[in-house]
Amino acid sequence: MMSSRIFTSFTEDILKSKQSKRGVMIMRDAISLRVSSKGVIITLDPERDFSDIKSSLNRYVGEAGDFFAGVNLFVNLNGYNCLLEDMQELISGLSRFEKIENIYFINEKENTKYRTTDTILLNRTIRSGQRIKFPTNIVIIGDINPGAEVIAGGDIIVLGKLRGVVHAGAQGSIKARVVALVLQPTQLRIGNIISRPPDDSGLSEPLRPERAYVKDGAIIVEEMKL
C-alpha cells in the first residue's frame, strides 16, 4: 500500500532571490573576497579562465572605489597556474584599487571543494540552533530536531526523525529528494519550492519511512515501499 501526502507548497520569489544571491551568483564569480585581520584576501577560482578572473576582478575594482584605502591586499592564487604575463595583468588591475597599501601574492589551496555528487555522513542528532550546510548530499544517522536546519546541495537522507527545517537541492535543483524514517519537518524546501505540513495536521503522523520530491512544481511526500 502506498499513500501520499501533499504539503502546502509555495514558490517564493524571495527564495529565488536568495538562490541568486547565495548560490548561482557566487558560483559565477571567478574570484571571492574575504576580509581577515591582516587585510583583504582575494581568492582565485583555479578552474576558471584567466579572462573570467580578470573581468570579475575589474568589476570588484570598479565597485570598490577607495573602500580598501590603507589595507593590505592578498591575492591567493589557490593553485591557479599563473603565467608571468597574467600576473602582470593582475597587478596592473589590482593597482587600480585606490590608495591600497601593499599587494601580496600567496598560493594556498583552499579546502578542496566538495562536489554535489559527494556525500557527507553525519553520525549524530542535529539539535535546535545548529545549522548544517554542505553543497553535497547529506546522510544523517540521528534526528533533526525542531529548530535545527540542514541545507544540502543534493539529497538529504535522515535515518531518524526529521522534525526541523531541511533544504535539499539548495543551489536550485528540483531533482533533489528528502528521505527520512519519520518525516515531520517544520518546513521542507527542495530547490526553490518551500512547503510546510498543512496547519491542521496533528501529531498523529505516520511513523514510517517517507520520501519527498518535486512533481509538477509541488512537493509530494509519499510512503516508501519496503
Partner: peptide
C-alpha cells in the same frame, strides 16, 4: 504563535541584507 513552519527569512537575514524587511 503557531507560525514556526512559515519562516523563510529572519531578523538576521534582514540586517545582513539577504532579503528585504517585508520578505
Amino acid at each position: 504563535m503557531g507560525l514556526e513552519n512559515r519562516i523563510v527569512y529572519d531578523i538576521v537575514d534582514v540586517v545582513e541584507g539577504n532579503c528585504r524587511l517585508e520578505q
